[in-house]
């Protein structure tokens, strides 16, 4: 590993890190949008449980049923975009290698 790293020029290593950070940022954005769409594209807050109602036959009373379910909201999108922006921003510190 050390021998491999010695062979790679430091500017090439920086370029590789830059690419990895940019690809990670893109994956986070795409993953977040995909998750948000797949869980119903909610424009509210993220939820980890949903409630449904039914009527109990004897009392005719409202009965609540709670189900564990993840629904991504706008805060989830915001956090993902924020994380992706940080990674993309960090990638700017790594420059392309100069042509010889």
């Amino acid at each position: 590993m050390a021998a491999l790293l010695r062979e790679i020029d430091s500017s090439q290593l920086k370029f590789t890190v830059k690419k990895i950070l940019q690809i990670l940022a893109l994956l986070i954005v795409l993953g977040a949008i995909g998750t948000w769409l797949a869980t119903g594209a909610s424009r509210g807050w993220t939820k980890t449980e949903v409630q449904t109602e039914s009527i109990e036959p004897v009392t005719e009373m409202r009965v609540l049923h709670t189900e564990k379910k993840f629904i991504a909201g706008v805060d989830f999108l915001g956090a993902a975009f924020g994380g992706a922006a940080l990674l993309a921003g960090a990638s700017l510190f790594f420059r392309k290698p100069k042509a010889n």
Partner: peptide
């Protein structure tokens, strides 16, 4: 008391 968002 519970709400669907864990932080809330």
């Amino acid at each position: 008391l519970t709400v669907p968002n864990p932080m809330q």
